[in-house]
């Protein structure tokens, strides 16, 4: 059976409703992690949810009826999609993350400090080499060295080196931001 035929067969299986139920289960299991990963890059909650929406829609089409395979893929796709969004924008540094669960309205001072910090991080993520930005987001988003190696197509032993370089560059760039 050719790839196209297999793909069509999966889509037909999907159309019978079982596929959608399986996808819903997959979605509900991974949604929170995906949104938080996206949020760590793009900053605000709505854009993070937009990124998640795009990623799950792509997963639905890419892995029809076979979502177990998509678990790692969605996280990697989230990092890349979020970085694409971040690098495609230049004027949103003043927009910041909103947390839907709040215990009180934040003080103005806390809000300003938090906003500036996030804006600095996003500016630095835009400037860093793509692979450095990706490895930072992946690792600090909870991905293991093995998962990062798979995602970036490198040896596991090389992930530490990439990460070290990226964190060192992050520190230098953040220092630059602070002293600008």
């Amino acid at each position: 059976m050719g790839l196209q035929a297999r793909h069509n067969e999966r889509l037909e299986r999907l159309d019978d409703g079982c596929g959608v139920a399986a996808f819903e289960s997959f979605f509900r299991y991974h949604y929170l992690a995906v949104v938080r990963l996206a949020q760590s890059v793009v900053g605000d909650s709505q854009r993070a949810q937009d990124v998640a929406q795009d990623v799950f829609l792509a997963a639905y089409r890419r892995f029809p009826g076979d979502y177990e395979q998509a678990a790692g893929w969605v996280r990697v796709a989230t990092v890349h999609t979020a970085l694409n969004v971040l690098r495609g924008e230049r004027r949103r540094d003043t927009r910041e993350l909103r947390v839907q669960v709040v215990t009180s309205l934040p003080s103005a001072e806390d809000t300003v400090i938090e906003r500036e910090r996030r804006a600095d991080v996003r500016r630095v993520l835009r400037r860093l080499p793509r692979r450095s930005a990706a490895v930072l987001v992946m690792r600090h988003g909870g991905m293991s060295y093995v998962e990062i190696a798979d995602a970036l197509g490198v040896r596991v032993g090389y992930v530490g080196t990439l990460l070290r370089r990226a964190e060192s560059a992050l520190r230098k760039e953040m220092d630059r931001e602070t002293h600008l």
Binding site: Y31, V35, Q53, F56, V101, E167, L170
Partner: peptide, 26 residues
Amino acid sequence: HDTESAAQLFSAPQLVPDVDIAWARL
């Protein structure tokens, strides 16, 4: 030390999106 600094920079208040709404939208 650099690792810890990076972890702090990437830490954020935990977003609690509404999965039901997100699923309905999707």
